[in-house]
Design a protein around this nucleic acid. Structure first.
Lengths: 148, 148
DNA sequence: CAGCATCCATTCAGATACTG
DNA sequence: CAGTATCTGAATGGATGCTG
């Protein structure tokens, strides 16, 4: 064990990456943060969690984002194995962007991010929770988990 | 409902923030990403999840990080309500950094980030999982969840 | 339709040096 | 011990204009 602390209860796997002393590309947390990296990235993923889109549909859904940033994000997410790009050799060109299985697995991740940020707020349509312990309900469909 | 899609099963709260078309500071996902923002941030949080530390203990645990970045991160995390700073008026000055309750709640968030990044890898000491479906076990202690 | 090229302002992190 | 001040280079994102 590289760093025997309370973080390492006996019997659990001690992944050396859990003890890195610098941000390395091998650390799973860094891998995920790298995939989500950049402004607008989570919004693009949210749109794709709702279903596949063409480039112009994404642009319409996120009108403030510039073309440069949108194509940057799509290229980045494609390289990260999150997004799949379907080029249809036709005229006008048709391209459909879809999430890979790995991309769909980001649903729970975005849900966890949402939950932390939404914690302790006043409830809405779901009903009251005076204790302030309310979390947004985890949707049965993993896809429903991703919001923004 | 602002944007009736598959993302919004009937009966679930439809938070308008789930449909923002730009990265706003009110979106819970953005809030969390803002808290985690910056290189080294998750590593600082990991160290504090293991227990409270002094400034120099953090510096020793993360030796490559510069003083400037460390104090930047601690200030940022303090502003974000993740870290608590205990100044002891003595000589030499003693300061202890601890996680707030909110900070501890980042444990599951880091676990979700870890899980996505670690997915599909070969298992280690826990035993084999030929199917490749292994996830790192969720620790009983929420704190143990955070690694890097 | 689906983009890439270019330019520019801003932010960020690392290095170095200094202080209550 | 526990930081802050300053500088610099690199990375980022937004605006604009052009192409297969």
């Amino acid at each position: 064990m590289t760093h025997p602390t309370v973080g390492h209860p006996a019997g659990l796997p001690d992944d050396p990456r859990a003890d890195v002393t610098a941000p390395t590309p091998e650390c799973p947390v860094e891998i995920t943060l790298a995939a989500l990296h950049g402004r607008w990235t989570t919004l693009v993923i949210r749109e794709l969690l709702r279903g596949d889109h063409s480039y112009s549909e994404l642009r319409a859904a996120l009108p403030v984002m510039s073309d440069k940033v949108l194509s940057d994000r799509l290229a980045h997410l494609t390289r990260a194995g999150v997004v799949d790009r379907d080029r249809r050799p036709s005229w006008p060109p048709r391209v459909r962007y879809t999430l890979t299985p790995n991309g769909h697995r980001l649903g729970p991740v975005l849900q966890a991010l949402w939950d932390w940020g939404a914690y302790g707020e006043e409830p809405r349509s779901t009903g009251d929770d005076p204790v302030g312990l309310r979390e947004l309900p985890v949707h049965p469909k993993a896809d429903g988990a991703a919001r923004c």
